[in-house]
Nucleic acid binder design. Structure first.
Length: 605
DNA sequence: GTACATATGCGGCCCTCCAT
DNA sequence: ATGGAGGGCCGCATATGTAC
């Protein structure tokens, strides 16, 4: 079997032909035409196509042909087409390497492979890749975390391929033709699918103009950053110590399971290393990852997706940096407040709406809320205060039935009514639910990227040592800029929502946790009366026998059941009124309380 | 629960290819 | 020129990882 230039050119594979518009356009499909007319159109289109020529070194082509002939000799099937698939994959790798001007590994998009090599049963591109690996033609880097390192502008989802050393340096025999616009096509297809999906759900599509100066500035900030060798050390250490990783929820045969015993195995550690290596390679090629989601407008980059512990080792212009991670506490609930108060239900608000607001704006919202729920139903298991709240209240499509939600609705009837008003809508008499999470995330990303980051750029952008790395509901900045950035965040969030936000840094969170721990151990060793503490303790630790403070000036009774309810019907207005009345109490002692909304997040405890 | 990513399998629809 | 077989494209589903 001889495979020269003309043989390959005549193989006219379907995906290649597509770029010559052999397929019917949408308009042509609508026009009625006989079978004969359709075939004539196809023939003419085929004749008009330029010849498809593959670019391959002659030695490489001969080698693959020999291996192929040995394998498929005497077997039935379209051997010419199959061989072309082998050569086509090599062509894609080869032409990419020529474009990049390097013999290093290059990345090929999964969808490109599907588009050109095919995925048909029994002979998919995975088979082609396996064969070429077996024949020592290609080397393929399998990295399940490679997603974090792909260059999204040029090559969104990719795997690394490189030719084996034995095929380097061979002379090329053919010349590639133009028109293989597979990257653009794959990207367009993906975006089209995503937009259609979102529109079907009734969501607006977030179009972000990346050319805006402050976004270009953010991109430049990220391009100045890198990961220090300490990151590799950290991974090694985590592997040695078999560090626990965060819980994941996995689906096993359709049933969601929570896995809490995950450790840093050598396999995962290697994947972390591979990802970092690919990131560095992309960075060396000046192709850092940068992407705005069309769904929620959030910014996605390697920084956002790589494991959180690595962020301490991010360098700026090659210099180690102390980062302050300024987070908006309970971000999505915070933005929900604004929407709640905009509803009709808020017009006839009971005291519970304001009580909910104060809970949200106070420290430890999720824990406090879980405490309230558990007081109502003592036996109700609370797995994870935050997850439970989101599962049952924010993302729930079942707004009545679960015990958690039922209790929540009793405690906060106005919030419940307002939530339904926001979420529920009818299409032809059928009740549907909006995707509240996406609505909140859209609002959040607009405020953070278009307002806060824009203002930081305009006011502080002239400082050369200031960079901002957005993390959805927070900003990473060099520590020396912590306070000015925090001031801008507070100001803009207050302006956008009307509520005073709680913006914390990671060290502050850690300090708070440790203080809590220390207070707990101190309470246990009560034999010795504690020395008077000069530093004010965290608000939560001011608990007394009767109640505890959930926000400055807002005190909740430890045991509302001390009072006798008016009746035993929790759904009656009297019961709810009693519950809300008995839940909250006057502050103990003569201490002066600040106004609720004056709660300042920037004040240290 | 949400978003993002990779990777794979399956079935429907319709186009391409091949033998006649 | 034509009927049937083969196969590409695409939506959808599933399993796994990261981040909120």
């Amino acid at each position: 079997m001889a495979y020269g230039r003309n043989n390959l050119a005549s193989l006219k594979l379907n995906p290649l032909e597509k770029w010559g518009s052999v397929l019917q356009s949408d308009e042509q499909k609508k026009q009625p035409q006989t079978n004969a007319q359709a075939r004539k159109r196809q023939r003419d289109a085929l004749k008009a196509l330029p010849p498809t020529i593959l670019l391959l070194p002659a030695g490489l082509q001969r080698y693959i042909t020999d291996q192929y002939n040995a394998r498929y000799q005497g077997k039935p099937g379209n051997h010419g087409k199959r061989l072309a698939k082998y050569l086509l994959l090599c062509h894609l790798v080869w032409s990419e390497q020529q474009k990049a001007g390097t013999l290093d590994a290059i990345h090929l998009h999964n969808e490109i492979l599907r588009l050109h090599i095919g995925k048909d049963k029994g002979f998919s591109y995975t088979d082609v890749v396996e064969d070429l690996k077996e024949w020592s033609v290609l080397e393929v880097s399998d990295s399940y975390l490679a997603s974090g390192c792909a260059n999204r502008q040029v090559d969104p989802h990719s795997k690394a391929y490189t030719f084996a050393d034995s095929f380097h340096g061979l002379e090329s025999e053919f010349v590639a033709v133009d028109g293989l616009r597979y990257r653009e096509r794959a990207a367009q297809d993906r975006l089209k699918r995503q937009i259609a999906k979102n529109q079907a759900k009734g969501l607006r599509v977030m179009v972000v103009d990346e050319q805006q100066p402050h976004l270009q500035w953010l991109k430049a900030c990220w391009e100045r950053c890198d990961y220090s060798p300490n990151t590799d050390e950290l991974i090694n250490q985590m592997e040695r110590e078999q560090t626990y990783l965060r819980d994941v929820v996995v689906k096993v045969k359709g049933v969601r399971q929570r896995r809490t015993d995950r450790r840093m195995t050598p396999r995962i550690a290697q994947a972390y290393r591979d990802s970092l290596e690919l990131f560095r390679r992309n960075k060396a090629n000046h192709t850092p990852e940068w992407h705005f989601s069309a769904t929620n407008g959030r910014l996605h980059s390697f920084f956002n997706r790589y494991f959180t512990g690595s962020r301490d080792h991010v360098t700026l212009d090659g210099q180690a940096m102390v980062w302050a991670d300024l987070d908006l506490a309970a971000s999505q609930v915070y933005f929900l407040l604004k929407q709640l108060y905009a509803t009709r239900a808020a017009g006839q608000a009971g005291p519970d709406l304001d009580a909910f607001r104060d809970l949200v704006l106070a420290e430890g919202f999720y824990q406090n809320l879980a405490g309230l729920i558990q007081k109502e139903i003592p036996g109700l298991p609370i797995n994870d205060a935050k997850t439970d709240f989101f599962t049952h209240v924010i993302y729930s499509k079942n707004h009545q039935a679960t015990p958690y939600r039922g209790t929540f609705n009793h405690l906060f009837p106005t919030v419940h009514a307002a939530l339904l008003e926001i979420v529920r809508y009818k299409v032809k008499g059928v009740t549907k639910f909006r995707n509240l999470a996406v609505l909140l995330q859209q609002e959040e990303s607009q405020v953070f990227l278009q307002t806060i980051c824009r203002r930081i750029h305009d006011e502080l952008g002239h400082h050369q040592d200031l960079v901002v790395l957005p993390v959805h509901d927070g900003l990473c900045v060099p520590q020396q800029y912590q306070e000015p950035v925090r001031a801008i965040m507070n100001e803009e969030l207050l302006r956008a929502t009307g509520f005073q936000p709680t913006v914390r840094t990671t060290p502050e969170k850690k300090a708070k946790k440790e203080a809590k721990k220390a207070a707990a151990t101190e309470a246990r060793e009560e034999a010795v009366p504690a020395a008077p503490v000069q530093v004010p303790a965290p608000v939560e630790e001011l608990a007394c026998e009767v109640g505890f403070e959930v926000a400055p000036g807002i005190w909740v009774r430890m045991d509302p059941a001390l009072d006798v309810p008016p009746n035993n019907d929790p759904s009656s207005p009297e019961y709810v009124a009693w519950l809300l009345g008995s839940l909250f109490m006057d502050p103990p002692g003569p201490s002066v309380q600040e106004p609720v909304l004056a709660y300042s997040c920037s004040d240290p405890y």
